[in-house]
């Protein structure tokens, strides 16, 4: 390798290293997914860390070996061995089929366990009462309905800290995805069905919520704040919402559901009964029944989730949506 070329390589390497270091220093520790504020996000982070460690068992040696081999067996290094015919070794091949298999088996076991554990429709075990929020994706804003309190909001939610929240999700728009990274992973919101997602905030704070699946022109404006507060503040907030001059009626919903570029956060002091169910069943004719996909009744147990999932293939599962 010529001197000039080597300096080029070195320059490139140092440039990359520099940029990487800058990136990591530029705010490590502030990334939402890596800073969970709720039990679901925390478990998901554990799982991410386990995965990274398991992968690193292979990845790190591979990167090192790559460098060493490429360096040592460069043609200009006349000291190195040269065995042009050597192309097979049962032992070596067994090793590198074997190790990944073992790691994948371990990872698979972990994943299967966590998949059941973190099934989004599974309620979070807690002594405290669950809060239910019904979520509707509209073009291009989120409507949140608090059925128990009889209020609704647009593009903002307030939840009590340390209490499980059950989100029921649907869409009156193209398929969307509902994501609050600091509290836990996302789930799709789809027309004609109701999905369930259970999350909980462990400490008060304002968390970032966003739409994650593209729904058209002004999709970028579908972000919202999640305010986790103490129980007392939560009750105050409910009271405040009830004072709001705006009310959600079937008519004002009709107006709201029309595409609009950007909506500021808004509170509604009342909601009509069963509006969420009407949105879910909007496209269904008589005889078709409401399909609860990936969700079910509030007191759902692990067992009933897997009962549904034994449909084994998601196509079949989705077909039942037509309620035949």
């Amino acid at each position: 390798m010529s001197k000039k070329r080597r300096s080029l390589v070195r320059a490139a390497f140092s440039a990359i290293t520099l940029v990487m270091t800058m990136l990591l220093l530029s705010g490590c520790g502030n990334y939402m997914v890596l800073n969970p504020k709720g039990p679901i996000a925390a478990q998901q982070l554990d799982l991410i860390i386990i995965t990274v460690i398991l992968c690193a068992i292979i990845i790190v040696p591979v990167l090192v070996i790559t460098f060493v081999i490429v360096w040592r067996y460069r043609a200009t290094n006349k000291k190195a061995d040269y065995k042009p015919e050597w192309a097979h070794s049962n032992l070596l091949e067994t090793i590198w089929w074997g190790i990944p298999i073992v790691i994948v088996i371990v990872l698979a076991i972990v994943t299967v366990r966590y998949t059941h554990e973190l099934e989004p429709s599974k309620a979070i075990a807690s002594e405290k009462d669950e809060v239910t929020i019904q979520v509707v994706s509209l073009n291009w804003k989120w409507l949140f309905i608090y059925p128990e309190e009889g209020i609704a909001t647009v593009n903002t939610i307030t939840i009590p800290e340390d209490r499980p929240v059950r989100f029921e999700l649907t869409a009156d728009s193209p398929m969307n995805s509902f994501w609050i990274p600091e509290l836990g992973g996302q789930i799709y919101a789809m027309s004609g069905m109701s999905m369930a997602l259970h999350l909980q905030a462990d400490e008060p704070g304002t968390y970032f919520g966003t739409a994650a699946n593209f729904t058209g022109e002004h999709f970028e404006n579908m972000t919202f704040d999640v305010n986790a507060t103490s129980d007392a503040e939560y009750d105050q907030w409910i009271e405040k919402a009830k004072q709001s001059p705006e009310t959600l009626t079937d008519e004002s919903y009709e107006e709201l559901s029309k595409p609009s570029e950007k909506e500021e956060p808004m509170l509604y002091s009342s909601v009509p009964d069963g509006i969420y169910e009407r949105i879910v069943t909007k496209y269904m004719h008589d005889g078709a029944e409401l399909h609860q996909h990936g969700s079910a009744s509030a007191d759902e147990t692990n067992g009933s989730t897997s009962a549904e999932a034994t449909n084994a293939n998601s196509e079949e599962a989705s077909s039942s949506h037509n309620g035949h």
């Binding site: 099934e119 429709s121 789809m190 369930a196 990936g294 897997s306 998601s314 599962a317």
Partner: peptide, 12 residues
């Protein structure tokens, strides 16, 4: 589309 809610067994 793990997030489609096909259930834990399908996802696993």
């Amino acid at each position: 589309f793990f997030t489609m809610g096909s259930g834990a067994n399908v996802n696993a």
